[in-house]
Simulated assay, not measured.
Amino acid sequence: MSDDQYFRLSAEAVTPLRHALPAVAAQTVEAITQGVPAYAEAFSGTLGPRIEKAVQAALGTFLNLVSRPARAAQGSPLTPALEAAYALGRGEARNGRSLDALLAAYRLGARVAWRELAAISVRGGEDSVTIAHFAELVFAYIDELSAASVAGHADELATSGRARRRHLELLAQALLAGESEHLAIAAADRAEWAPPQTLTAVLVPEPAARAALELLDARTLQAAEGGPEETSVLLVPDAHGVSRAHLMRLLAGRGAVVGPSRPWLRVRESLARAVRTARFAPGDGAAAVDTEDHLVSLVLNADPQALADLREKALAPLAGERAPTAAKLAETLRGWLLHHGRRDEVAAALFVHPQTVRYRMTRVRELYGDRLRDPQWLLLLTVALA
């Protein structure tokens, strides 16, 4: 409702209302103090007189509206009141309060103010039609103030939310860049983020990142960069110990790769391991890939060229055999090492007859000779065939 749409009251009707404003404002504040617990402390403390003056000013603005000549000079008396209500809504958001208490205060304040102002109008001899219009205008005015506060609250949340999200992104980047403890703690303070004991890096395909975030600890950080392309990096707080199994269950079916838990300032180590694991164990999507299940492969793949040289040395005795035969002998030797020479277990693992294992191992012993009794060679073969 614009100020031009407000029903006009005569000067004679408004004058007694103006005289009563201080008393009406005091009664309104008292009613809000008693009826809205969230404001009881603020209204009854040192802010009480200031709030009372603000209520009186808002009621004065309303009386200016309803007594303003229809063709008054430009400049709406409603504008300052709406701006104040907007600022009030933003302030409530900055203080971490919802709008419930503020809107309740508006409603209660409107009822009390209307009751007192209407009583004055009745005593002044105003007719019922005028008083009915007056009631309509009071509540329309409060509705406009409420709407302005709602807008201010929403805008503040949007602004502060964007700012905090940016601070959280910068914190994640600082951690993954390995910034110093001093800088990381400063970034956490700016983001209003309480550091956990540990962080666990999780790689998730970008399409699944939002859904995964909704399932995880609210303190989970998301890094814009750091992982493979088309992958989001999530840093999950305190997912160590027994909590890790719960994390793995939450991430099942989302194509996630979960790094080890590390002290929060060392989370880049967790990410590095997750990235390395993702290269050779992408998973099937049904279960999250746990890097703890791939430690041997991680060690073996730490230096691919060294592993290739080691395998070449360890399998050199098989070099004279035909390729298919050499592959079968190497496979049997691997089973023999893993099952400590128990022929039946090797046969079961390879889906062959025990006699086949016996035949192949006879050939392997011919090729390797005493090296199969040398601990160093057994270690070399175990690593090469792992």
Rank of each mutant, 00 (worst) to 15 (best):
A42E: 10
V275T: 11
G341M: 09
E116P: 05
A272D: 15
L221F: 13
Y368F: 15
L102F: 07
K328W: 07
D290N: 15
Q34H: 15
S146Y: 01
V138R: 00
A132V: 09
A23M: 08
A101D: 15
D155S: 07
W114D: 15
Q74R: 11
Q27N: 12
L99F: 09
L78G: 05
H294K: 05
Q74Y: 06
A281Y: 09
Q173T: 14
A54P: 10
A347M: 05
E156W: 07
G96A: 10
Q355D: 14
P80I: 08
A211D: 15
E225D: 13
L329E: 09
L102E: 08
V364R: 00
Y359V: 14
G227Y: 08
S67C: 10
A184K: 01
E156D: 10
T79H: 11
L88N: 11
E169S: 12
T33D: 11
G255C: 07
E229Q: 06
T46Q: 12
H339M: 09
G178N: 11
H133W: 07
D293M: 08
R166E: 13
P263C: 03
L380M: 14
S270L: 11
V296D: 12
D374C: 07
M361I: 14
D293G: 05
A73P: 01
A184L: 09
L271M: 12
R279K: 12
T332D: 02
A186F: 01
E229V: 09
A281C: 09
G109V: 06
T325Y: 05
G283C: 01
R164Q: 15
R311L: 05
V36Y: 05
E136D: 13
E156C: 10
A209C: 12
A349T: 15
A386D: 10
L199A: 06
T362L: 05
A347R: 00
F43R: 00
A326N: 10
T277W: 00
E83Y: 08
V357M: 07
A154K: 04
A20T: 10
L310K: 04
T362Q: 13
A223N: 08
E92W: 03
V122T: 12
R162W: 08
R90I: 03
L337N: 10
P205M: 06
A224V: 13
P205W: 05
L102W: 05
L145D: 10
G161P: 02
R210W: 04
G335W: 02
S243L: 09
P260H: 03
A384E: 02
H182T: 13
T362W: 01
A327G: 07
